[in-house]
Design a protein around this nucleic acid. Structure first.
Lengths: 340, 340
DNA sequence: CTGAAAGCGCTAACAT
DNA sequence: ATGTTAGCGCTTTCAG
């Protein structure tokens, strides 16, 4: 296990100075074609690879972006990171990944470590931006872009890319109403959640109101984005009289919970009950019947977040600051006209 | 946006030399308690964070591990990486993530970039270790650990951690047979795949033979681990006479495809058809009925892979080289006695 | 067009 | 117990 060759080894072998080697490797500064060739030959012979750590130190740029997600095993986060990785790789950047389990303390800790590692920037994903976090962002001293979230409270605005949840929820409700449903239940997330909880509920409500359909309070249940809670809630909803003929859910997982509850009560989807989700996780296409849902293009959100970060690093100001992505309705087998 | 404080700033402020600051920060070498306190105070006042890049350069250790996965959006890979991240973080290491889409060219490219980045080691996940890869590993010149795969062909063995697929398949088949089934179909992956394809088939076959049950050739279908192919294959299997009363599948996705086919033909699971999967992806617990399957503890595989890598970095030789994890059968609702 | 030399921020001998 | 100093491998003026 011999020492890795350094730029000095290449220089010696090519009979030039290290400065010249650096020039041909980085393509800056004028180099005679013959010299260039000699250097390249030496590089190839030695199997030389420049040491990115040393380069980072002197350039004060690591070509690395820190990515902070709650849990990479969450399919939503995974798709997001997939998009980030692709975009980053395309620009010579690497992703340093950290999972926080949504613990603020962990998040702050990781941001500090990212600072030590000299990441060029940070992408923060899908959590709420609290004051502690804003403080940590400030101490990081490097650009931050938000993916699938945005700043809702006080404090400085940050570049963000996310789907317009309100518009997406309206799409879902309008689809259901246009199929002829009038008794529509809503499985919502917490109204305290200003990113995905509140606006989706508002979208459902406003779209219904716009068509003159009222949603009675007992048809609205906060299942906290959890599948099991959605299952239980649906069991209860299906006992109500009159019974809802459709359920719109603020996440696919909740929708799948609802479908399970219907199945366990012997109701068929969509003949007896229409179910519409939100997110379009891969799972949505795989369950039976396949789930009608509102797509969030996760891969694209991730990619755009990185692209905005690189833009900031290049000195440009992303415009507009918050990039609202239009949601798209994907109609599959879980929605149909109400029972006669 | 002023310059980040360096160790010199801290030294000046504390009225000591940089060496002393380094000593207190790294806890090596003797330091008087009073000096120590002064340094710590200066660190706090300045909000100083050591520059990990500079440290990596001189220590020749980046405290970074490269992780190469086909696709982080694959739930299997995501769980694996989750386990890696947790274990790495617990030891002060960071994960640098790369997704190869299973392209050998990409993999080789990324390994080269990892070399430039001075990762301390590499974890390679769930692909087949080809000669090109072995070559790239060699050029990397740093330890490699395999997660959810192992070296099957010629070439040097590598530390690995993976589930014993053969034993897992036997578990699945024995479960089905002990329920009383005698006509069992197998949805297998490619027999060319020496990690998950071949051994699972062998496990099914041998467990059946051990009970004196024969699996006719028309009951065995290679669906290449794909859900759609498994769906089609099951449609055909269910047309056979006599019809199988159970299907064992070499992956959960194939099992879910089989369940879909049964549902679409009006057969109930498990009353008319028992279905057993392999992997225990999260989805398995979510589909209706929930899927009986063989669990691969992905999180643990990832964590152990990192732990072995750190072991190698510490100069120890992992023993035994290949860590075969015992699979576990998870009985859920999709398996039951055969129809009368 | 090329080389010499001064760092980037830190650690680790080696002195004192 | 603490300070001085020589690098780690690379880029980048500044000379020539």
């Amino acid at each position: 296990m011999q020492r890795e060759p350094t730029i000095h080894d290449v220089a010696r072998r090519a009979g030039v100075s290290v400065a010249t080697v650096s020039r041909v490797l980085n393509g800056r500064g004028p180099v005679a074609e013959a010299t260039r060739a000699r250097v390249l030959a030496a590089v190839a012979e030695l199997g030389y690879r420049p040491n990115a750590v040393a380069r980072s130190l002197v350039r004060r740029r690591s070509c690395t972006v820190g990515v902070l997600v709650p849990d990479i095993a969450n399919p939503f986060a995974a798709e997001l990171v997939r998009g980030m990785e692709a975009e980053a790789a395309a620009h010579g950047y690497h992703i340093v990944l950290a999972c926080s389990d949504l613990s603020i303390a962990q998040e702050v800790r990781y941001i500090g470590l990212f600072r030590e590692r000299q990441v060029d920037g940070l992408i923060y994903t899908s959590g709420t931006v609290t004051p502690e976090l804003q403080q940590a962002f400030a101490e990081l001293g490097r650009p931050v872009v938000l993916a699938a979230t945005t700043v809702t409270g006080p404090g400085p605005a940050l570049p963000a890319v996310l789907v317009d949840s309100y518009a997406g929820a309206r799409l879902a409700m309008e689809h259901v109403l246009s199929l002829g449903h009038r008794r529509v239940a809503c499985l919502i997330g917490s109204l305290q959640d200003p990113i995905a909880g509140l606006p989706r509920w508002q979208g459902y409500r406003d779209a219904a109101a716009a068509r003159g359909v009222e949603i009675p309070p007992e048809y609205v249940v906060d299942a906290g984005f959890r599948l099991e809670a959605a299952y239980e809630a649906t069991v209860r909803l299906l006992r109500l009289r009159p019974r809802p003929t459709a359920v719109v859910a603020a996440s696919d997982l909740m929708a799948i919970g609802a479908m399970g509850a219907a199945a366990d009560r012997g109701l068929r989807v969509p003949e007896d009950l229409t179910v519409v989700g939100f997110d379009n996780i891969r799972l949505a296409a795989v369950v039976r019947p396949a789930l009608t849902t509102v797509a969030q293009p996760m891969h694209e959100i991730g990619a755009r977040a990185v692209s905005r970060l690189l833009q900031v690093l290049a000195g440009e100001q992303p415009e507009p600051l918050v990039d609202w992505i239009a949601p798209r309705l994907i109609v599959r087998g879980s929605s149909g006209p109400p029972p006669a």
